[in-house]
Every structure is written in structure tokens, then in C-alpha cells.
Amino acid sequence: MNPLTQSLISGLMSGAVYALLAVGLVLAFHTTRVVNLAHGESFAIGGLVAATLADAGLPAYVFAPVAIAASVLFLLAVERFLLRPRRSWPIGNLILVTLAAAFLTRGVLQLAMGVDPLSFPRMFTGAPFRIAGGVLPPQGLALIVIGVTTAVAVTLFLLFTPLGRKLRAVAENPDAAELLGVNVDRARSLAFGIAGALGGLSAVLLVPLVSVDYQAGLGMTLRGFIAAALGGMAPATVILAGLGLGLSEALVTNYAGALAQDPIVFIALIAVAVWQSRKIAFGGTGRA
């Protein structure tokens, strides 16, 4: 077995997940200006619901859609009940609200699902593919293909459909969109709904290869955010950034060991943030 190929394969797998999470995070961020720190909870919810239903003996074509629906409902609720009534609040306070929501969700998941990591059987089975000394299970291939395709599809949807056009209009100037008859609240719901679907989908695809527990959410938010920040918060580049993040994590693990992964990813985030903020004025905090 070739460890380098193997780490590239696993990097692509986690990269696909980061791309899905980052695209959802960016969608929600643009339409509401809030970095939703409860975003990763949609992953945890999707994964845990799928695992529980699978454990109860339900087939994949039942538990996968139900799990994704649960993730969608969760983020819809965050937007509808937590963010929408507080539209006029400062962004910092709204970020705190999403953080509190993430925290509460984690507590609820711990009570409802227990503390043990859960998983469920793979939906895509069969003999693993062997590529250049690396092993890729069918589920992993499905993760990469479906994940990247979906992320690209969402980007194309944003760019080329009337609904996507409306979402971009709301993201850029909600008041002007409202004046042209666009229901901004509904557009925001749509954005959060899509974000939830992407979170749930990434859980359904990834969890069978690893596992998920009640505290997976914040870590996923963090990685999704890093990918989003690396990609400059634009949906198309964010996909590449997500894949890049996954690959570099895998390479770091391969060459420097798993322990170095967190610190190096963290340092990468800071470096990117510093690089991006270099444009900001040298005394103040931006344009007046």
C-alpha cells in the first residue's frame, strides 16, 4: 500500500465534506450576514438521526432522506425562530445567538443520543477500488462524487437559475430585492434549508466511513468556516478551498502525524485571515 496515495484519497473524502459544509455556510452568511456557528450541528444531527434509524432496522432509502430532512428542519428553525426576529441586532450578538444554539443542540443530542460514537452501515458496498497503491471503498467514491457534484450543482443553481439569481440579489442588497417583490424572509429560509440539506447529506455520506457523536458539530463548523474563509466566502472558490483543506490535512497527517493536524490547520486559518485582512486600513477598521 502506498501511504501517499491513501492519504490523498482520504483527503479528497474529507475535502468533499468540507466543501459541502463551506458552501452551506457561505449561502447562509451571504443572505443574512451572520456566520452561523450552529451550522455544523446539522452534520451532527443528520449523522445521529441516520445512525439511530439504521439501528432500528430501517433501510437506507428511508433513513437517509429522514436524516437530511432533520438537518434541514434544524437550520430552518435556527433562521426562523432565532435569527429572523432579531434582524436589527448587531452581528456580534447574532453570532452569540448561533453559538448558544450550537451549545444547546450539543446538550440535547447528548441527552437524546448518548455519548457513544455511532455509525451505520454503508449504502454503497462492494469490493474497494485499488488505485495506485491506495484503497477507495465504494462509499468513499460515492462521498467524493456525490459531495463534489452537489456542491457544484448548488453553485450552478446560484449562478444560472431565477431562484439562485434572487438569492444573490438578497445577499447583495436585501432592501432593493424586497422593493422588487422578492420575499427576503423566504429567500433566507431557502438558503438555510439548502445549507441544512448539504450538512445532512455530508453526514449521511461520511459517517458510515467513520462515526459521529454529539460533539461533532463545532469541529465541523470550524472546518467549514476555514474552507469558506480560504475560498474568500465565494461559493465557487469555496469548493476548491474545501478540497484543498481536506488534502492538506491528509498530507500533514501523512508526513507529520495526526497530532499535528489541528495546530497546522489552525495556523493555516490565522495565516489566511491575516492575509485577507491586509487590505483593511492600517489604523481603522475599514471604510468610513
Binding site: 497530532l259 489541528d262 495546530p263 486559518l269 485571515a273
Partner: peptide, 23 residues
């Protein structure tokens, strides 16, 4: 961190905590 916009500070400190716990 203080040179970064608010949300980077938030995620940066969150990440710092994760790193210390991980180490």
C-alpha cells in the same frame, strides 16, 4: 488576533482552544 475582523477572532480563539485540548 486583534487585527482580524470579529468573526475571525471568534473562530481563531475557538481553534486555539481546540489545539490546546488536542495537544
Amino acid at each position: 488576533l486583534v487585527r482580524l475582523p470579529g468573526v475571525y477572532l471568534a473562530v481563531g480563539t475557538l481553534g486555539f482552544g481546540m489545539v490546546v485540548e488536542g495537544l
